[in-house]
Amino acid sequence: MLEALAFYIFAAVTLVSAIGVVASRNIVRSAVCLLGTLGGVACLYFLLNANLLAAIQLIVYAGGTLILIVFGVMLTSKSPWVVFDPTRGQVVGAVIVSILLATGLCMLLVGNEWPAGTAMTASPHVKDVGTMLLTDYLVPFEAASVLLLVVMIGAAYLARPEK
């Protein structure tokens, strides 16, 4: 009962701010709404016994990616009120397609009978997650570190000042 109430509150926060992201014409407001979605999803992670993931979500997404996006907006916009809107026909088409997509996905998912699995009882300890990262998931972990290096060099190269 109580878990349901908490879930509905967090889901409502996530959905309302996700709708805000789409509906807002001002890109900075979209980014602020994205903060609401990220926070709501982090709360859902807490509900789903994923404490570490929730903290990572807050620290990487909300503290890093979002700031990067707002920073990008500041560097690329001439005034807060410049908007480029799609035409009405494009919007209507996109809304219809996405509603169809959402209903289709929901019907598919709800109609499916998932095999009975084992439920998680407690949040996995940080130490266990770290051990998994360095044993079972070592190759993706190392690949990710190489990828990050590539991204760092690439971003620095792309954003270098013009000669």
Binding site: V21, V22, V91, V97, S98, L101, A102, L105
Partner: peptide, 13 residues
């Protein structure tokens, strides 16, 4: 699924 569709909508519009 709903958040996913909203994301697609955001990318398109």
């Amino acid at each position: 699924a709903i958040v996913f569709s909203l994301g697609i909508l955001c990318m398109v519009t």
